[in-house]
Design a protein around this nucleic acid. Structure first.
Length: 450
RNA sequence: GUGAUUGUAGCUCAGCUGGUUAGAGCGCUAGAUUGUGGAUCUAGAGGUCGUGGGUUCGAGCCCCAUCUUUCACCCCA
């Protein structure tokens, strides 16, 4: 049998894992610094938990797990009409936010609100893989649930900026508010078409004004309604200009005005508290597909001359009632999610990973035979007790082979302890970089490597 | 789901309009060098040409199907 792995999944080599862990640890450290605590949830959830939370597209991309116990046994042979629900009741998680909402409801009596949790785990989507798109990928989520304060939004933006500063990636942050989009839909008298409108508007930059108008008309909007959206197409300038013109448009929409207020609050607070940070850009065209967002919407893209990466690498927003469907209404949450795999792709592309050579074994002991190996193991053990990464070559192989092993592992020192050294209680240490050799006591060696 | 694209040695890839025994570089193994890695030289191992059908006297090359790779659309981290 020829080995293989499912489409859109990947193996990670030791070198890649070092890099990936660097990203995970950087994000995790920032989360911890801001008071977030970690949880994990199962890879699979009940389909009832997952379905209907991500829109029609999302449901299509859910990986469904076949029930165990031969679910097809009772079915007739030639492709019977069978409802998915009859053969599958579990699915792999599509994101971390919905399972988190489920977690909050199930554990509401143990949780002290506001609850600030982070979660770093893989998610699965049955997408067609392409650039920056995998069927298994890691999300690094931080959410605050049980607090309406806009200070949470402010904090999350600050976290984003700190993370990417630590990683060394230049970014741009875009900010929008679902209430503004709802206000616009209200304004043109098509409040129930908010999703269609936002999805179309989102493409403005990509496909241009005419195509967007065409798409809106196709979705059943009247010419008059589309005409009313014109100011949105023309919107430009700095944040204040955009917000001012939105205010003119939405002055009669209570929801819309609330969205504008929220945006202003977040931007003003950021400017006041973090005057040196990059400023999020107000962007009415930012839609984000996830159906459950109700307030702020955040998206981060790479803005680095060294990178061509155009997909978003972090996103988030506020959802006012995600726990409601699980039976805990009136609890608002807001969160962000870093796409670790895409971030790794970007770091790779721009060569911004730190140098991780030499973080493993520092010294390898050559194996000359049973008695020598035993003697060396004692020294190795003493070194490890001092916190020095050391290892003994397990086989009594040829010198060349053992040296090559050290070389390919980039181990900087090799210890040669044969009968001579055992007698004199010394260790011959070879520096693999310059080839120099010296004869040292254990204490000298500890001092050299420690 | 739609439209393209890819698959030949462990890796990166050649392989002419279909024509004898499918090649190279790197890597690997052994030796030159039995207590010294990288550099050099020599030798060697390694392939059902993604898979299954078809066309043909003859298929790595043409046709069909399928899987896989990569990319765009849709959507998204």
């Amino acid at each position: 049998m020829k080995p293989g792995i499912p489409k859109g999944t990947r193996d990670f080599s030791p070198e890649e894992m070092i890099r990936r862990n660097h990203v995970f640890h950087t994000i995790q450290n920032v989360y911890r610094k801001f008071g977030y605590v970690q949880i994990e949830t199962p890879a699979m959830e009940n389909l009832t938990t997952l379905e209907g939370k991500y829109g029609d597209e999302g449901d299509k991309l859910l990986f469904r797990i076949l029930n165990s116990g031969e679910p097809f046994q009772k079915l007739s042979k030639p492709a019977p009409e069978v409802r998915t629900s009859e053969v599958s009741e579990k699915g792999l998680r599509y994101d971390l936010t919905v399972p988190f909402a489920r977690y909050v409801v199930m554990h509401q009596n143990e949780i002290t609100f506001p609850f600030k949790r982070f979660q770093i785990q893989p998610v699965w989507r049955a997408d067609r893989p392409q650039k920056g798109r995998y069927r298994e990928f890691y999300q690094c989520d931080a959410d605050v649930i049980g607090s309406n304060s806009l200070l949470n939004e402010v904090e999350l933006v600050r976290i984003i900026i700190e993370v990417f500063k630590s990683l060394g990636i230049q970014i741009s942050v875009r900010l929008n508010n679902r209430k503004i989009l709802a206000g616009l839909a209200e304004l043109i008298g098509e409040p129930e078409k908010i999703i269609d409108i936002t999805v179309a508007i989102d493409k403005l930059e990509k496909i241009g004004r005419e195509k967007v108008v065409e798409e809106l008309l196709n979705k059943g909007l009247s010419k008059d309604a589309v005409q009313k959206l014109q100011p949105v197409f023309d919107m430009g300038g700095d944040n204040d200009t955009i917000l001012a013109s939105l205010e003119r448009m939405l002055k009669d929409s209570e929801t819309g005005m609330k969205g504008i207020f929220e945006m202003n609050f977040i931007l003003d607070t950021l400017k006041d508290v973090y005057p040196n940070d990059i400023v999020p850009v107000v962007d009415v065209t930012l839609a984000r597909g996830l159906n459950y967002y109700t307030g702020s919407i955040i998206e981060v893209k790479v803005d680095d001359s060294r990178s061509e990466f155009s997909s978003s690498i972090c996103g988030g927003g506020r959802y006012d009632d995600l726990t409601g469907i699980f039976g805990l209404p009136g609890v608002s949450g807001v969160g962000i999610s870093f796409g670790a795999d895409r971030i790794c792709d970007v770091l790779e592309e721009i060569g911004a990973f730190p140098d991780f050579s030499n973080i493993s074994t520092r010294i390898l002991f050559v194996n000359f035979g049973q008695a020598e190996a035993r003697h060396c193991l004692k020294i190795v053990s003493a070194l490890r007790d001092k916190g020095i990464y050391a290892e003994l070559y397990p086989d009594e192989a040829k010198m060349k082979k053992q040296m090559s092993y050290a070389d390919s592992r980039k181990i900087p020192f090799v210890a040669l302890v044969g009968t001579e050294e055992m007698k004199s209680r010394k260790i011959t240490v070879k520096n693999m970089e310059d080839g120099s050799q010296s004869s040292l006591s254990i204490d000298d060696l500890v001092a050299k490597l420690g």
